[in-house]
Design a protein around this nucleic acid. Sequence first.
DNA 1: CCGTATCCAACTAGATACTG
DNA 2: CAGTATCTAGTTGGATACGG
Lengths: 149, 149
Amino acid sequence: MSAGHTAVTAPAQVTGEVTGEVIVCETPQDECGVRDVLDRLGDKWSVYVVVELSSGKLRFKELQRRIHGDISQRMLTLTVRRLERDGLVKRTVYPTVPPQVEYELTELGRSMTHLVKALADWSIEHRPVIAEARRAYDEVQDEAKAGSA
Amino acid sequence: MSAGHTAVTAPAQVTGEVTGEVIVCETPQDECGVRDVLDRLGDKWSVYVVVELSSGKLRFKELQRRIHGDISQRMLTLTVRRLERDGLVKRTVYPTVPPQVEYELTELGRSMTHLVKALADWSIEHRPVIAEARRAYDEVQDEAKAGSA
DNA sequence: CCGTATCCAACTAGATACTG
DNA sequence: CAGTATCTAGTTGGATACGG
């Protein structure tokens, strides 16, 4: 994304390898190619779009309504465009008036819902532990601050 | 992270649920709790720290050396602190001189390496398809731009 | 209805210098 | 060695207005 605020383009990637339980890369500088997925998963809305589309085809407005946390029109556009560019989402425009656009997961996109589900499962399963860890961590930090004051 | 540039703190989260192949949330506003994981997975370096620590305990400097793409001291500090706060990484300080600090995955952290591995596997497996999808998409976009010029 | 364009606010990340 | 502090640049995300 060299210039524009609206650009969808992203950088390139290289080769990597995963072995057994321990993750290894052939060439250390290549980032293992994981960045490809992470860049898409890492942004604020992509996962939710995939989640909503996992249950079927949706129109723009309908998709927007379903996304949690009130996604703006602009962000939804950017998000679906990036997903479309990566071949995870298919966009179908019906030249009606008013215009109608439908979004659905591609085969590739559907193959990723398993991962997203795994992520969600893990997250939900370990939420209490993580929450407690954060609470404990913050408490210690606060004490340290109070003590030094 | 309300104020500081150096702060480690992050917002809270709520309840969610995953059912079958389709992902569902009980209350639509709760973000399904997936954000918890994603926030950590989404930042630039966390995954690489987890990857490197998946093969064992490491000191700060050693960890820094191994991370791909030349992580700065500051970013490594921020990253491991966030991971520590979430209970994914354990930080052990030996009060020697010069100081020595060791980082290792906790049980929780190790339970996440499976996910990271799944992510990496998927990424590597589908890299060609994604690359081709992007190429095709960009080509069409460029044509459109050229056509309108 | 489905966007795009523009402007602005917030956060993330890098470089560099300094400390226990 | 293992950080913290500071400053700055780049990127992401939100609000709003307008266009096909």
